[in-house]
């Protein structure tokens, strides 16, 4: 990436009020291609609100979110036309929910779940769609023999991997993840983290990962934002923030982690 290249996504002063209650306040940051940004903070700190705001899922009360489109340069995601925005959401962007059931179509097979985004952008060759689905099952370390099984027959960790495959099949440029390893056992979580790490590095993806788990943040993200009461209280390189936290809240967060 050449220095001075424009960021992929720029948030400026993103603020969201739920009536009078602030969800997130004055959040600004840039993210470049290939970069993983972690958002940490306790429950209710506004992490998820902010993630929804920057991923075109929740219009902020004020502030702008600019995305560098492939052909037309930077564009405010809430000012572009709805068809363009929805197309971006199905192609250039991915969103991985904490609960895989929110991100999967539970009534259709694993293969159809992966193929859906391809079909949504016009793929009309069954054989090719199936091949792509098998390829992605393999990439997320799932048995391709289970391609025709329904998602509810899979374990939580496998459902999460399926959700990731479903998002990555259109080669998005940025993926938003809300506690992607949230509800999983530690062993399953470790495997998923490792997978995510590899995928992000190999595909040169940008990613924004919301997590309350500092170990997850350290493992996956290049940079961190620490949020508290809707505001970013500290930001920087991941190891700076975790090894040398400066804000009282960051210090509290880091010192509260249990080390087995």
């Amino acid at each position: 990436m050449p220095p001075g290249a424009p960021p992929l996504l720029s948030a400026r002063g993103v603020t969201k009020f739920y009536d009078a209650i602030p969800g997130c306040r004055d959040v600004s940051f840039d993210i470049w291609p290939g970069e993983v940004l972690g958002i940490v903070g306790e429950s209710g700190s506004g992490k998820t609100t902010m993630l929804n705001c920057i991923s075109a899922r929740l219009e902020p009360t004020s502030g702008t979110v600019e995305y560098a489109t492939r052909h037309d340069g930077p564009a405010d995601i809430y000012r572009m036309s709805e068809p363009v925005r929805r197309l971006l959401m199905r192609t250039d962007w991915g969103f991985v929910h904490q609960n895989p059931q929110e991100g999967l179509r539970m009534g259709v097979s694993a293969g159809a779940n992966i193929g859906e985004r391809l079909m949504a952008v016009g793929a009309r060759h069954y054989g090719n769609i199936r091949e792509a689905a098998a390829d992605w099952l393999d990439k997320v370390e799932m048995d391709t023999g289970r391609m025709d099984d329904l998602p509810f027959t899979f374990s939580g960790g496998m459902q999460q991997r399926l959700q990731i495959a479903r998002n990555l099949v259109t080669a998005p440029r940025i993926v938003f993840m809300d506690e992607p390893t949230g509800g999983l056992d530690v062993s399953v979580q470790a495997r998923l983290l490792d997978l995510l790490r590899g995928l992000v590095a190999d595909l040169g993806l940008a990613a924004v990962i919301v997590t309350h788990d500092l170990a997850v943040a350290r493992l996956l993200s290049h940079r961190l934002l620490v949020m508290r009461r809707g505001k970013v209280v500290e930001s920087g390189l991941t190891d700076q923030v975790l090894d040398d936290p400066e804000h009282p809240y960051s210090q509290l967060l880091v010192s509260s982690v249990l080390h087995p």
Binding site: G236, L237, D239, Q240, D243, D244, E246
Partner: peptide
């Protein structure tokens, strides 16, 4: 060392 490496500011 950590200041040089950049994990301390």
């Amino acid at each position: 060392l950590r200041c040089i490496y950049g994990n301390y500011r």
